[in-house]
Amino acid sequence: MTMPDTKRGRERKGQKKRQQRRRFEIERELEARERELDFDELYEEEEIELEI
């Protein structure tokens, strides 16, 4: 037998999904920063000429 669907249950599930989404977005941003820093460190002392 399953539990009936309740407004409180739906709200709790929605809140959990929002927390998971926030956590995922924060982790993704931190990883992007790490990649960006690695790129900057990699080419820190080199001059790069761009032809426009």
Rank of each mutant, 00 (worst) to 15 (best):
residue 11 E to S: 03
residue 16 K to L: 14
residue 52 I to W: 12
residue 39 F to S: 09
residue 11 E to N: 02
residue 25 E to Q: 12
residue 19 Q to D: 15
residue 4 P to Q: 03
residue 39 F to P: 01
residue 43 Y to Q: 04
residue 39 F to K: 08
residue 8 R to E: 13
residue 7 K to V: 15
residue 43 Y to G: 02
residue 38 D to T: 06
residue 29 E to W: 05
residue 15 Q to F: 08
residue 33 R to I: 12
residue 45 E to M: 08
residue 4 P to D: 02
residue 42 L to K: 15
residue 7 K to T: 07
residue 48 I to K: 02
residue 41 E to G: 10
residue 41 E to R: 13
residue 41 E to A: 11
residue 21 R to H: 08
residue 3 M to K: 09
residue 10 R to E: 03
residue 11 E to G: 00
residue 6 T to I: 01
residue 49 E to Q: 08
residue 23 R to Y: 06
residue 16 K to D: 13
residue 46 E to T: 14
residue 6 T to C: 01
residue 12 R to M: 13
residue 7 K to G: 05
residue 19 Q to N: 09
residue 36 E to S: 04
residue 43 Y to D: 04
residue 13 K to R: 13
residue 23 R to M: 04
residue 30 L to F: 00
residue 23 R to A: 15
residue 7 K to L: 14
residue 39 F to L: 14
residue 43 Y to P: 01
residue 12 R to Y: 00
residue 38 D to A: 15
residue 47 E to W: 02
residue 17 K to T: 07
residue 45 E to G: 12
residue 18 R to G: 06
residue 26 I to Y: 09
residue 26 I to R: 11
residue 23 R to L: 06
residue 18 R to Q: 14
residue 46 E to I: 12
residue 20 Q to P: 01
residue 32 A to K: 06
residue 47 E to C: 11
residue 23 R to E: 15
residue 52 I to M: 09
residue 52 I to L: 14
residue 8 R to V: 01
residue 32 A to G: 09
residue 40 D to G: 10
residue 33 R to C: 13
residue 29 E to C: 03
residue 23 R to N: 13
residue 44 E to T: 03
residue 8 R to K: 07
residue 11 E to L: 14
residue 13 K to A: 14
residue 12 R to F: 05
residue 27 E to C: 08
residue 4 P to A: 05
residue 28 R to Q: 15
residue 4 P to L: 02
residue 50 L to M: 10
residue 52 I to F: 09
residue 19 Q to A: 11
residue 17 K to D: 15
residue 47 E to N: 02
residue 13 K to C: 04
residue 26 I to T: 10
residue 45 E to W: 08
residue 17 K to C: 02
residue 30 L to I: 07
residue 18 R to V: 11
residue 21 R to Q: 12
residue 10 R to P: 00
residue 51 E to G: 09
residue 17 K to E: 15
residue 13 K to I: 01
residue 37 L to Y: 11
residue 47 E to T: 06
residue 49 E to S: 10
residue 47 E to G: 03
residue 6 T to R: 00
residue 47 E to A: 03
residue 21 R to C: 04
residue 11 E to T: 12
residue 27 E to V: 03
residue 37 L to G: 09
residue 48 I to W: 02
residue 40 D to K: 13
residue 46 E to M: 11
residue 43 Y to N: 10
residue 3 M to G: 09
residue 6 T to Q: 00
